[in-house]
Design a protein around this nucleic acid. Structure first.
Lengths: 171, 171
DNA sequence: GTCTATAGTACGATAGAC
DNA sequence: GTCTATCGTACTATAGAC
């Protein structure tokens, strides 16, 4: 991340990263499938937290309630605001990094769809709820790291989920 | 697309594509920024249709109503079911193509957010509605090309939007 | 650890259309 | 004469094969 900030992602070569880390290029590619992947280390953990939350939500919870527990469950991940902001600056600077971020988000949605289905939620409701939930998650994260924001992630996510219910309750 | 089906996307070189098209590699890269982009030709048109629909929706329409008009507006694009299915088989076979598809979808969401904001919809409602709308769009498209489906895209999209209102109207 | 294919870039030349 | 389209070549870095 130091190098990506210094020279830009596209201008940073794997050779430079490997050198600063004191390893060879080959070793770099042993740890990360490609240059982008290193910025998305925590994604499996995030996914696991959300899936577990859905699986563990009350039996009488609606699909959207389950989504709510998933949004709550990842609060512990989003604490270091400065680091999240820095990381996002890098991602926003490069289109291929945005692509990678989006596929992570999509895998998340797919995993949540599966967790809902495991609870007996039928299609297309499972997909619909998961997609919507990830949408809320994304907006919540973006709001959290937005300049000037003082609220915590968890609070924002809860507010947005409530807002969603209002928005979709229109005439 | 012929070559991508014959040999697989990853196994197809730009040289082969250029040869079959009767041009040089250099010319290929004049038309497409990269190997993936050629599969996403219609995306600007799709985006324009949706943005125009939102902009042209009735003044008293709720954000979600505007989304509804956008979902309707693209019905004319999704007619050739066989071609859409073939294209999706290719995309689903390669992760980098899925990434590209997702960034197109994300740009769509961003554009719709802007169109809603232009109508006076404030944040975070604009983002929330746009994200949700794109989620519905995606599920609708997937349902449309799913094996065995006999419904048209427009009908599916309408049903799903109605379904969404129910899902988010929970206890 | 070594080797290599290929995507993608940079810069430049040429030539036809109107 | 200007604009636009194709082609030529050399090069780098990624990423995969072995």
């Amino acid at each position: 991340m130091e190098l990506y900030l210094e020279r830009g992602f596209g201008q940073t070569t794997v050779a430079q990263i490997a050198e600063r880390a004191g390893v060879t290029e080959r070793t770099f590619f042993r740890y990360f499938t490609d240059k982008r992947e290193m910025l998305f280390d925590g994604s499996e953990r995030l996914q696991q937290l959300m899936v577990d939350a859905v699986a563990g939500s009350p039996a009488d919870a609606t699909p959207l309630d389950s989504i709510g527990t998933a949004l709550d469950a990842v609060g512990s991940v989003f604490v270091d605001l400065t680091r999240s902001r820095t990381r996002q600056v890098i991602i926003d600077s490069d289109e291929s990094l945005q692509e990678r971020e989006l596929i992570k988000r999509d895998r998340l949605a797919t995993a949540i769809t599966g967790a809902l289905r495991d609870r007996g939620v039928e299609e297309p409701v499972a997909s619909l709820a998961a997609q919507t939930g990830i949408g809320v998650f994304h907006v919540a994260f973006a709001s959290w790291i937005a300049p000037g924001n003082t609220l915590g992630y968890a609070e924002i996510a809860r507010n947005l989920l409530a807002e969603l219910r209002i928005v979709t309750n229109g005439s």
